[in-house]
């Protein structure tokens, strides 16, 4: 105990490292969207009953919004993973999926990171957000195979499923861009204003 309280030098962090504000803003995006996603999760069941398991995947993109939005605003590696994991933690007591839900959320965060990692977190255009949304949703559909046994469905259904989820991901990409831009336009988050000034490359 004594040793813990002895004076030690404050930690020096690089400019690119996460500061407290980044952590809290990312977490807050996760928390707010956790409730939206919870509503979508419950709305999904009647939708799946009407449209069938293939076409109802159009909602997949909505699940990627917190990740993409956090990445777009914060522009630091790992933002999607952190915000989605925190969102999963919030949903833990309410979601019908329980622990699978949080593993799923963390995986979805990683899926959002994959396309950005491929361009070393340098591109943030609308088109790229759409593409990364599609890539993320396709990856998440592929990861469902062990759990739900999609491989037993007929090939046509499987292809429709992948295409529909890709379209949903693109829609999610546009929505996250629009939401992030409207937040910046409101005058919030002055530190992150650089996000909207430069559409393609981070200075």
């Amino acid at each position: 105990m004594e040793k813990d309280l002895a004076y030690s030098k404050p930690v020096q962090r690089r400019r690119a490292a996460w500061n407290t504000k980044d952590i809290l803003i990312t977490g807050m995006i996760g928390v707010v969207f956790a409730f939206v996603l919870l509503a979508v999760t419950f709305a999904y069941f009647p939708l799946a009953a009407i449209l069938g398991p293939a076409y109802s995947r159009i909602t997949d993109g909505i699940f990627m919004i917190p990740g993409l939005m956090a990445l777009y605003l914060i522009r630091k590696p790992g933002a999607a993973l952190v915000s989605m994991t925190i969102g999963g933690l919030v949903m833990l007591p309410f979601s019908p999926y329980g622990l699978i839900g949080i593993v799923w959320a963390a995986l979805a965060g990683l899926e959002c990171e994959v396309p950005f990692l491929a361009v070393l977190y340098r591109k943030y255009s609308t088109l790229f957000l759409m593409i990364s949304g599609s890539v993320a949703t396709i990856l998440s559909t592929l990861l469902e195979y062990p759990l739900y046994g999609h491989a037993a469905l007929s090939i046509g259904v499987q292809i429709t499923m992948l295409v529909v989820s890709a379209v949903g991901g693109a829609i999610g990409g546009i929505l996250s861009k629009l939401l992030a831009e409207s937040m910046l336009k409101l005058g919030l988050l002055a530190d992150y204003r650089r996000s909207s000034l430069d559409h393609t490359y981070r200075k």
């Binding site: 500061n19 407290t20 504000k21 809290l24 803003i25 977490g27 807050m28 707010v32 409101l186 919030l188």
Partner: peptide, 17 residues
């Protein structure tokens, strides 16, 4: 809701810092 929560997060971060 989103804007007020982000504003709250910003304030909380400053006070924690």
């Amino acid at each position: 809701l989103l804007s007020s929560s982000l504003r709250h997060a910003e304030r909380m971060a400053y006070s924690m810092d």
